[in-house]
Protein backbone atom coordinates (compact mmCIF):
# COMPACT_ATOMS: atom_id res chain seq x y z
CA UNK A 1 0.00 0.00 0.00
CA UNK A 2 1.98 2.94 -1.28
CA UNK A 3 -0.58 5.54 -0.17
CA UNK A 4 -0.32 4.56 3.49
CA UNK A 5 0.85 7.57 5.52
CA UNK A 6 3.83 7.35 7.84
CA UNK A 7 3.07 5.50 11.08
CA UNK A 8 2.55 7.21 14.41
CA UNK A 9 3.23 6.08 17.97
CA UNK A 10 -0.07 4.44 19.03
CA UNK A 11 0.43 5.69 22.59
CA UNK A 12 -0.02 9.27 21.34
CA UNK A 13 -3.77 9.04 20.60
CA UNK A 14 -4.30 7.12 23.85
CA UNK A 15 -2.53 9.85 25.81
CA UNK A 16 -4.81 12.41 24.15
CA UNK A 17 -7.85 10.25 24.89
CA UNK A 18 -6.90 10.15 28.59
CA UNK A 19 -6.83 13.96 28.79
CA UNK A 20 -10.07 14.17 26.81
CA UNK A 21 -11.70 11.69 29.24
CA UNK A 22 -10.81 13.90 32.21
CA UNK A 23 -12.14 17.02 30.47
CA UNK A 24 -15.36 15.20 29.61
CA UNK A 25 -15.79 14.08 33.24
CA UNK A 26 -15.58 17.73 34.29
CA UNK A 27 -18.15 18.59 31.59
CA UNK A 28 -20.49 15.89 32.95
CA UNK A 29 -20.16 17.13 36.56
CA UNK A 30 -20.93 20.68 35.46
CA UNK A 31 -23.76 19.40 33.28
CA UNK A 32 -25.31 17.46 36.18
CA UNK A 33 -24.99 20.28 38.74
CA UNK A 34 -25.73 23.13 36.34
CA UNK A 35 -28.45 24.42 34.13
CA UNK A 36 -28.54 21.38 31.78
CA UNK A 37 -30.41 19.20 34.25
CA UNK A 38 -31.76 21.68 36.82
CA UNK A 39 -35.44 21.50 37.58
CA UNK A 40 -37.84 23.96 39.14
CA UNK A 41 -37.47 27.57 40.25
CA UNK A 42 -35.34 26.81 43.29
CA UNK A 43 -32.27 26.19 41.20
CA UNK A 44 -32.39 29.66 39.74
CA UNK A 45 -30.84 31.17 42.83
CA UNK A 46 -27.34 30.27 42.03
CA UNK A 47 -27.41 31.51 38.49
CA UNK A 48 -28.44 34.98 39.73
CA UNK A 49 -30.93 34.87 36.92
CA UNK A 50 -34.17 36.77 37.04
CA UNK A 51 -36.88 35.36 34.82
CA UNK A 52 -37.79 37.86 32.16
CA UNK A 53 -41.01 39.72 32.63
CA UNK A 54 -43.89 37.88 31.10
CA UNK A 55 -41.94 34.67 30.79
CA UNK A 56 -43.62 31.77 32.47
CA UNK A 57 -42.33 28.36 33.26
CA UNK A 58 -43.69 25.41 35.12
CA UNK A 59 -42.54 25.06 38.69
CA UNK A 60 -41.46 21.49 38.09
CA UNK A 61 -40.27 22.13 34.55
CA UNK A 62 -36.65 22.08 33.48
CA UNK A 63 -34.78 25.33 33.92
CA UNK A 64 -32.96 24.89 30.62
CA UNK A 65 -36.15 24.98 28.57
CA UNK A 66 -37.06 28.36 30.08
CA UNK A 67 -33.56 29.86 30.13
CA UNK A 68 -32.65 32.39 27.45
CA UNK A 69 -30.07 31.38 24.86
CA UNK A 70 -27.35 33.46 26.55
CA UNK A 71 -27.60 31.43 29.75
CA UNK A 72 -27.53 28.17 27.79
CA UNK A 73 -24.24 29.29 26.21
CA UNK A 74 -22.63 30.79 29.32
CA UNK A 75 -23.18 27.52 31.22
CA UNK A 76 -19.72 26.18 32.25
CA UNK A 77 -20.60 22.70 30.92
CA UNK A 78 -21.45 24.19 27.52
CA UNK A 79 -18.30 26.29 27.33
CA UNK A 80 -16.01 23.42 28.33
CA UNK A 81 -17.68 20.99 25.91
CA UNK A 82 -17.23 23.66 23.23
CA UNK A 83 -13.49 23.65 24.01
CA UNK A 84 -13.43 19.84 23.80
CA UNK A 85 -15.31 19.97 20.47
CA UNK A 86 -12.82 22.51 19.08
CA UNK A 87 -9.96 20.23 20.15
CA UNK A 88 -11.66 17.32 18.33
CA UNK A 89 -12.01 19.58 15.28
CA UNK A 90 -8.30 20.42 15.49
CA UNK A 91 -7.50 16.72 15.65
CA UNK A 92 -9.53 16.11 12.50
CA UNK A 93 -8.17 19.04 10.51
CA UNK A 94 -4.52 18.84 11.52
CA UNK A 95 -3.59 15.82 13.67
CA UNK A 96 0.12 16.74 13.56
CA UNK A 97 -0.39 20.08 15.32
CA UNK A 98 -3.24 19.10 17.69
CA UNK A 99 -2.28 20.14 21.26
CA UNK A 100 -2.35 16.73 22.99
CA UNK A 101 -0.30 15.16 20.22
CA UNK A 102 2.29 17.94 20.45
CA UNK A 103 2.33 17.65 24.25
CA UNK A 104 2.85 13.89 23.93
CA UNK A 105 5.73 14.21 21.48
CA UNK A 106 7.44 17.05 23.40
CA UNK A 107 7.00 15.82 26.98
CA UNK A 108 6.11 12.14 27.15
CA UNK A 109 7.69 10.44 24.16
CA UNK A 110 11.30 11.59 24.86
CA UNK A 111 11.01 10.13 28.38
CA UNK A 112 9.53 6.79 27.40
CA UNK A 113 10.77 3.81 25.44
CA UNK A 114 10.61 4.03 21.66
CA UNK A 115 7.37 2.54 20.33
CA UNK A 116 7.47 -1.18 19.56
CA UNK A 117 5.02 -0.72 16.73
CA UNK A 118 3.71 2.14 14.66
CA UNK A 119 0.09 2.65 13.78
CA UNK A 120 -1.78 4.09 10.83
CA UNK A 121 -2.76 7.70 11.72
CA UNK A 122 -6.04 7.55 9.79
CA UNK A 123 -8.18 5.52 12.25
CA UNK A 124 -7.52 7.84 15.25
CA UNK A 125 -8.24 10.81 13.01
CA UNK A 126 -11.55 9.27 11.98
CA UNK A 127 -12.32 8.63 15.66
CA UNK A 128 -11.66 12.32 16.41
CA UNK A 129 -14.35 13.09 13.85
CA UNK A 130 -16.78 10.79 15.64
CA UNK A 131 -15.92 12.52 18.94
CA UNK A 132 -16.54 15.87 17.28
CA UNK A 133 -19.93 14.73 16.02
CA UNK A 134 -21.04 13.48 19.46
CA UNK A 135 -19.87 16.71 21.16
CA UNK A 136 -21.63 18.88 18.58
CA UNK A 137 -24.85 16.92 19.15
CA UNK A 138 -24.54 17.72 22.88
CA UNK A 139 -23.94 21.41 22.18
CA UNK A 140 -26.86 21.64 19.75
CA UNK A 141 -29.22 19.92 22.21
CA UNK A 142 -28.21 22.41 24.90
CA UNK A 143 -28.78 25.34 22.52
CA UNK A 144 -32.16 23.87 21.61
CA UNK A 145 -33.02 23.75 25.30
CA UNK A 146 -33.21 19.97 25.58
CA UNK A 147 -32.58 19.02 29.23
CA UNK A 148 -29.97 16.28 29.85
CA UNK A 149 -28.86 16.38 26.21
CA UNK A 150 -25.44 17.84 26.92
CA UNK A 151 -24.40 15.59 29.85
CA UNK A 152 -25.64 12.46 28.05
CA UNK A 153 -23.72 13.32 24.87
CA UNK A 154 -20.65 14.10 26.99
CA UNK A 155 -21.06 10.72 28.74
CA UNK A 156 -21.19 8.93 25.37
CA UNK A 157 -18.03 10.70 24.26
CA UNK A 158 -16.43 9.86 27.63
CA UNK A 159 -17.15 6.14 27.23
CA UNK A 160 -15.43 6.15 23.83
CA UNK A 161 -12.45 8.19 25.03
CA UNK A 162 -11.99 6.17 28.22
CA UNK A 163 -12.18 2.79 26.43
CA UNK A 164 -9.54 4.09 24.04
CA UNK A 165 -7.27 5.42 26.79
CA UNK A 166 -7.56 2.47 29.18
CA UNK A 167 -8.04 -0.52 26.85
CA UNK A 168 -6.93 0.64 23.42
CA UNK A 169 -10.41 0.13 22.01
CA UNK A 170 -11.31 2.56 19.27
CA UNK A 171 -15.11 2.75 19.09
CA UNK A 172 -14.90 5.33 16.33
CA UNK A 173 -12.84 2.88 14.28
CA UNK A 174 -15.32 0.07 14.97
CA UNK A 175 -18.06 2.35 13.78
CA UNK A 176 -16.24 2.74 10.48
CA UNK A 177 -17.13 -0.78 9.37
CA UNK A 178 -20.79 -0.33 10.33
CA UNK A 179 -21.01 2.99 8.47
CA UNK A 180 -19.28 1.40 5.55
CA UNK A 181 -21.70 -1.52 5.54
CA UNK A 182 -24.53 0.97 5.39
CA UNK A 183 -22.78 2.51 2.40
CA UNK A 184 -22.13 5.86 4.08
CA UNK A 185 -18.35 5.85 3.92
CA UNK A 186 -15.65 3.97 2.08
CA UNK A 187 -15.44 2.92 -1.51
CA UNK A 188 -16.69 -0.09 -3.34
CA UNK A 189 -14.31 -1.87 -5.60
CA UNK A 190 -15.07 -1.19 -9.24
CA UNK A 191 -16.76 -4.28 -10.64
Amino acid sequence: MSDTPAGIDPRGPRFGAAITSVLLLIVIIHGLTGISTAQGAASFGWFAYQPLAGQTFLLNGFVLAAAPIGLRILDPAFLLLLVVALLFLWGVLSPRTAPWGVLYRKLVQPRSKPPTELEDPRPPRFAQGVGLLVSVIGLVLQLAGVPWGLPIAAAAAFVAAFLNAAFGFCLGCQLYLLLQRMGLVGRRRAA
Binding site: P10, P13, E117, L118, E119, D120, R122, P123, P124, F126, A127, G168, C170, C173, Y176, L177, Q180, G186
Partner: peptide
Protein backbone atom coordinates in the same frame (compact mmCIF):
# COMPACT_ATOMS: atom_id res chain seq x y z
CA UNK B 1 -9.35 -5.44 8.20
CA UNK B 2 -10.32 -2.01 6.98
CA UNK B 3 -8.20 1.04 6.30
CA UNK B 4 -9.58 2.60 9.49
CA UNK B 5 -8.62 -0.30 11.74
CA UNK B 6 -6.26 0.88 14.46
CA UNK B 7 -5.62 -2.53 15.97
CA UNK B 8 -5.36 -4.61 12.79
CA UNK B 9 -1.58 -4.20 12.28
CA UNK B 10 -0.76 -5.64 15.72
CA UNK B 11 -3.01 -8.65 15.06
CA UNK B 12 -1.45 -9.14 11.63
CA UNK B 13 2.04 -9.23 13.17
Amino acid sequence: STEMCARCPQVRR
